[in-house]
Structure formats: structure tokens, C-alpha cells
Design a protein around this nucleic acid. Structure first.
Length: 607
RNA sequence: GCCUCCGUAGCUCAGCGGAUAGAGCAACCGCCUUCUAAGCGGUUGGCCACAGGUUCGAUUCCUGUCGGAGGCACCA
């Protein structure tokens, strides 16, 4: 990577200046060299604030003086550097040799799909758990942020040589009240399918869904799930098993004597529970797939109970001396490990809490050999992070192996009015039905990837739909389609297309061509930085920048000859090679974002 | 009360110690006989919430104030 080479040169200059006695620095001195593409080309191809950073350590008040010393020790015969200069308060501006810039085309063509990737983090095995929405409702628009972030972060880490797995944790534990309530709601809706009216919590009666309905309404469960999706599940269950469970359920809901055997009751309960979950999880999988996210593993919380992991981890915590009994419950001494207070591991009714299962889950993650475990949570769970980390620490895992990323929340707005979201009350805006189906996967993903996850954001679904034609994703995709179109036209016209190493690259001298090349050369650096800083939104910004440069090139540098613009064939072949390089980078970038790179987009004339 | 995050252009947001604070959208003015106008050029638009502090230098770091979102269960 170019910045690595330049950093090396600067470091060498520092030690040479030190040896020559022109710069006195402490023995243990360590500086992080930052190289950036300056905002203005006048400041060179790359710029470093090294001299400004060294100021204090070197005890020289004028940074420009330090910069001048360093410039003196930068090699004069470097194949990279054309010239260097001191500027502003003490920046070192580096101008690269044109050959080097032009030769990035060779690199791009040679590496093709791999251009931009690196192996600098090879050997790291990373698990990213994200979304993990409760199986009591559909994937909502609010989940979109974590879904996009987790997926692209996984791609980014992969591009740095890490081995990455995506995982979704399904909170399907048997002792979960929410799951129980969800299954109960489905049972009520099931009865509705067979003509039983439902008395809703707000007092109104929903008719039974058969021609001849019963008159005596069944009470909709208190704290049940009102969403329409529950009706869909009930409908499919009714279609699958028919009315076999109706009699028993009616009696139960009406509080009458039940005649079914205990065995049948268990069978029925299990059936509803399992089927309800299966349907919901399938729906979640479908929605995420429509968003372009596919997991390597769907991990069932229930499996931790079934194989005894939860019990094991509880006794392990006890053996390590991190538990005690109080008020009939078993507590974790989380306050000794950074949490604000101790937490209940096993309730007085002997059921384990969520944290017990989560401790077992994280122990399981580490036991699978991951060197680094990343959890992406919504900020509404931030109160939970300390106890999770405490439980992981209690088990003997060091804190930094578990990284919790908190995405700030998305508040939903519809036409300017706040939408209260929630599965129990309020409206659920579904990721697939309410967004993807309207504006498509690409625009949806780009939309979520535009901002940093650290910023609380407002999403107005109606506005997003209205603006979908203005979504910058199309600007980026259009630039890609344009490049493809030039290459396709070239083939039609019979123009010769040559590999970059066979064209006369020195003909590429137009500022727009060089600007574009600089940006293409910066792509690997951009990937590394985005991965390091967990900042996929950098990539969408980079994408817009690059697309802008491509469009400028398109406007200013004619590639194919025409009657009005005859041009030497050598220039055409050189530019075609450049177009191809740009095409490769843009395609790689869009793939990294999980967004399609169309080869054509039909023009929509408004007039 | 404590904790997380945020107040930057009309709107949605980048930038998070450094050079003239940026982008997209919106508004206004131009550009299709030329590789797709989902494009390009131009104009308008900013006490970077406020007040102190650290620094050669603060939108960026620290403290406080004001304003906004969310969290502090034997729920998950």
C-alpha cells in the first residue's frame, strides 16, 4: 500500500535526522504517522503532519523547521517521490512520481477482484453477532442499521485477511415469558381463524374469520402481540393442522375444565411454540436475505439449555467464587467486575435469567476458537453491556476479546410525525415490506450506510421512498454503468482493448485522469481505515467521491473517437485501460457494500 | 440521580487537534446533432448550541450550562 511505503520513508528520515544529530528525540519515542490526501491538490498527493506531531518531543518550537530537516533526509532518488515541500504550519507535502500513479493501473488489473484487499490481519478469527432480533416479530426498519453495519463490517474485516463469521442469536429460550406470550397470542389468532371473535384489550371485538361465527368472544391475551404478522402465522398453522386444537384451546381460553390428556396438552403446546418460532424465524431470514445479509450460523439460545451449557456456566461461575445466594436467588458478583451492581443469575423460581444464558453463549463463542468476538447491540441495551462484560471476565476471558458496538438508535418518523415502534404496542415498520419492497435492497442499504452508527438518526420511511430517486446509490451505480457502457461501445466499434501494461500510460496526463487515479490508488487505504475504525460509512462517502471524479472524467476526457473528436488510437487504448481500472475498483467497492454493480441503467427522460 | 449518544448550511449528515469547515438533497441560473442528462458547470446558503479551560493552533480534547434521543428489572 502506498501509504505504508511513504510512512516507511518518513520513519527513515526521522531516524536519519536523529543520527545526524539534527533532531533529538527520547529513546522510547513513538509516533503514529498519519498520511492523508490533502483537501486540495495544491498540497501534493499525500500530506503528513509528522513535523507538527514531533514538535513537543523534539523541543523545537517551529514545526516548519522540523519539517525542513525531515525533508532533507527524504531520499532524492526514490522511485516514488517527485518532490516534497514544507507548507502551512509545518505540513510535509509529498508529490508522487507520475509513473507510480500510472502504474497503479497495472496493480488493479492484475489483482482484479482482490484489488484493495490485504492480509495484514491474517490469523484473526472473528465472530460478529448482529441484529439478533427477538423471534416475536419481524425484522423492522430499525434493525436495518445493525444489519447493514454488521454485514459490511464483516466484509471489511474479511478484506483485511481476517476469517469472519456472521451469527444471529435466537432468543428462543423455554423460560422466556415473551416467547410463551407470543405462542399464546398465536393460539388466540388460531381460534379466530375458526370463527371465534376476539375481545381486544381496548374493548372492541374483532370478528371471527369464518362465515358462521361464534357469538361468545375469546379474550385476546393481555400483553399479547397485536401485530398483523401474528394473524399470518395463525393462518398458516390453521391450514397445516386444521381445527384439531380448537376444542381444547376454546376451553382453556374460557377457563373451563380441560378434557385433553396431559400428554396431548404438552404435544399441543410444543407444536404451537415450535411452529410459531419456525415461521417467525423463516420470515426474519427472508427479510434479511432480501436486504442482502446471509448468516453463517443461526444460534439457538435453547440449545444452551438443552446441552447443559447454562447449568455448566452457572456452576463454573460458582467455582470461581463469583456467585452467592440472596433472597432465594443466585447472584453474580458483577459489581466486582466493573458493573454498577450485582445481577441475578438464577431467579428465586429457579429459572435462569438472560445473562446466565448469555454467559454460556459467550463461553461457547470463545470455545469455538475466535480470537475476537464482536457484538452489535442497539444503544437501548447499553445498560446491559457492563454485566455481559463482567460475566465474560468472571469466566476468565480478558475484556478486550469481546468488543461491544452500540449503534445509536433510529427514531422513526412518518411524514414528519414520530412513529412509536414496538412489538407490544405501536406500529412496526418492517424492513422488507415497508422499505426494501418499495425502494429496493441497494437504496435501502446505502441509506443506512450513509451515516456513522454513532449518530442517533431519524428515518422517515415515507421521505425515504419519495427521495429514493435521489438516493446517491444511483449516482454511484450510474457511474459504474457508464464505464461499462464505454467498454461495451468500444467493443461494438471494434476498438482495440489492451491490458494496462501494453498501453502508453504516459498519455494520461489530464488532471481529471490523474485525480481519478489518485482516488483509485487510495482505495486499499480506505478499506483498511474503514475496517479499523468500524466505519463503513466512510465507504459510501468514498463511493460518492469516486463517482463524482468518474463523471468529471467522463465529461472532460473523451474515450472513444467520434467524427467531431478524432483522436489517436493510442490515446483511446490508454483511456480504455483506465476506464477498465476504474470499473474494477468501483465494482469491488459496491460488492464490499453488498450493493449490485449494474452494467447498464436505462436513462429515464423526464420530458 | 447515574450512564450512552447527539446539537455543524433550509433538511439529512460527513469532518473529531491543523491549511479557505465539506457532501447529498432542497432553491436559483445555464448545458443533450458528441462514449446513457440517474450527468456536468455556476449561484445562494455557516457566531460548527452556549460559556469557560488546555494548546503555537479547538468544530475536534476537558469542565459546566442549555436543548434532544435512549437506558438504568428476579424482561429479553
Amino acid at each position: 500500500m502506498i501509504t505504508d511505503q511513504l510512512t516507511e520513508l518518513l520513519l527513515t528520515a526521522v531516524s536519519k535526522a536523529k543520527e545526524a544529530g539534527e533532531l533529538s528525540l527520547p529513546e522510547d519515542f513513538n509516533v503514529v504517522i498519519r498520511l492523508e490526501m490533502p483537501p486540495d491538490k495544491r498540497f501534493g498527493d499525500y500530506s503528513s503532519n509528522l513535523a507538527l506531531a514531533l514538535k513537543r518531543a523534539a523541543n523545537i518550537s517551529d514545526s516548519r523547521q522540523i519539517a525542513a530537516i525531515l525533508c532533507k533526509y527524504l531520499p532524492e532518488d526514490s522511485p516514488l517521490l517527485e518532490k516534497t515541500e514544507v507548507a502551512g504550519p509545518g505540513f510535509i507535502n509529498l508529490y508522487l512520481k507520475p509513473d507510480w500513479l500510472l502504474d497503479t493501473m497495472l496493480l488493479i488489473e492484475e489483482q482484479d477482484q482482490c484489488y484493495g484487499t490485504s492480509v495484514r490481519r491474517a490469523g484473526e478469527k472473528i465472530l460478529i453477532e448482529f441484529v439478533s432480533a427477538n423471534p416475536t416479530g419481524p425484522i423492522s426498519v430499525v434493525n436495518g442499521r445493525a444489519a447493514a453495519l454488521g454485514d459490511v463490517l464483516a466484509n471489511l474485516l474479511c478484506s483485511q485477511g481476517c476469517e469472519v463469521s456472521r451469527e444471529f442469536y435466537i432468543n428462543d429460550a423455554l423460560n422466556s415469558r415473551q416467547i410463551e406470550m407470543f405462542a399464546t397470542t398465536v393460539q388466540a389468532r388460531y381460534l379466530q381463524q375458526f370463527g371465534h371473535p376476539l375481545l381486544m384489550p381496548d374493548g372492541h371485538v374483532e370478528a371471527g374469520l369464518m362465515e358462521k361465527s361464534y357469538t361468545d368472544p375469546i379474550s385476546f391475551p393481555e400483553n399479547g402481540y397485536p401485530g398483523e404478522y401474528v394473524v399470518d402465522i395463525a393462518r398458516s398453522i390453521a391450514a397445516e393442522v386444521g381445527d384439531v386444537y380448537v376444542d381444547a384451546l376454546v376451553k382453556i381460553f374460557q377457563g373451563k375444565q380441560v378434557t385433553e390428556s396431559a400428554e396431548d396438552a404438552t404435544k399441543r403446546t410444543d407444536y404451537f411454540r415450535r411452529t410459531t418460532l419456525d415461521r417467525m424465524i423463516d420470515a426474519q431470514k427472508g427479510a434479511l436475505k432480501a436486504f442482502g445479509v446471509e448468516y453463517d450460523n443461526w444460534f439457538y439460545e435453547s440449545s444452551l439449555y438443552e446441552n447443559g451449557d447454562v447449568e455448566k456456566v452457572i456452576s463454573l461461575l460458582g467455582e470461581k467464587g463469583y456467585t452467592y445466594t440472596k433472597d432465594g436467588a443466585l447472584w453474580l458478583k458483577s459489581s466486582e467486575l466493573g458493573d454498577t451492581e450485582d445481577r441475578v443469575l438464577v431467579r428465586s423460581n429457579e429459572k435462569a435469567t438472560y445473562i446466565a444464558a448469555d454467559a454460556a453463549y459467550h463461553a461457547n463463542k470463545f470455545s469455538r476458537g475466535y480470537t475476537h468476538v464482536i457484538d452489535i447491540f442497539g444503544a437501548d441495551h447499553h445498560g446491559y453491556v457492563a454485566r455481559l462484560k463482567a460475566s465474560v471476565a468472571a469466566l476468565g476471558y480478558k475484556g478486550n476479546e469481546l468488543e461491544v458496538i452500540l449503534t445509536q438508535l433510529i427514531s422513526l418518523v412518518r411524514d414528519g410525525v414520530a412513529v412509536i415502534g414496538g412489538k407490544r404496542k405501536g406500529v412496526i415498520l418492517e424492513l422488507k415490506e415497508d422499505l426494501i419492497d418499495d425502494i429496493g435492497k441497494d437504496a435501502s442499504r446505502f441509506y443506512f450506510l450513509l451515516n456513522s452508527y454513532e449518530t442517533p438518526a431519524t428515518v422517515d420511511v415515507e421521505l425515504a421512498k419519495k427521495q429514493s430517486n435521489d438516493n446517491p446509490v444511483f449516482y454511484v451505480q450510474y457511474a459504474h454503468a457508464r464505464l461499462c457502457n464505454i467498454l461495451a461501445r468500444a467493443e461494438e466499434l471494434g476498438a482495440t482493448f489492451l491490458p494496462a501494461k501494453q498501453v502508453d500510460r504516459s498519455l494520461l496526463t489530464h488532471p481529471q485522469e490523474l485525480d481519478m487515479l489518485r482516488k483509485l490508488a487510495d482505495y486499499p487505504e480506505e478499506l483498511t481505515l474503514s475496517a479499523e475504525k468500524v466505519a463503513p460509512h466512510r465507504l459510501t462517502r468514498y463511493a460518492m467521491d469516486l463517482a463524482g471524479l468518474l463523471n468529471l472524467f467522463y465529461e472532460n476526457c473523451r474515450v472513444l473517437p467520434s467524427k467531431e473528436n478524432p483522436q489517436p488510437e493510442v490515446l483511446t487504448t490508454a483511456r480504455l485501460a483506465l476506464v477498465n481500472s476504474a470499473r474494477i475498483v468501483l465494482r469491488n467497492l459496491l460488492t464490499m457494500l453488498g450493493i449490485s454493480a449494474p452494467e447498464r441503467m436505462d436513462r429515464t427522460d423526464t420530458l
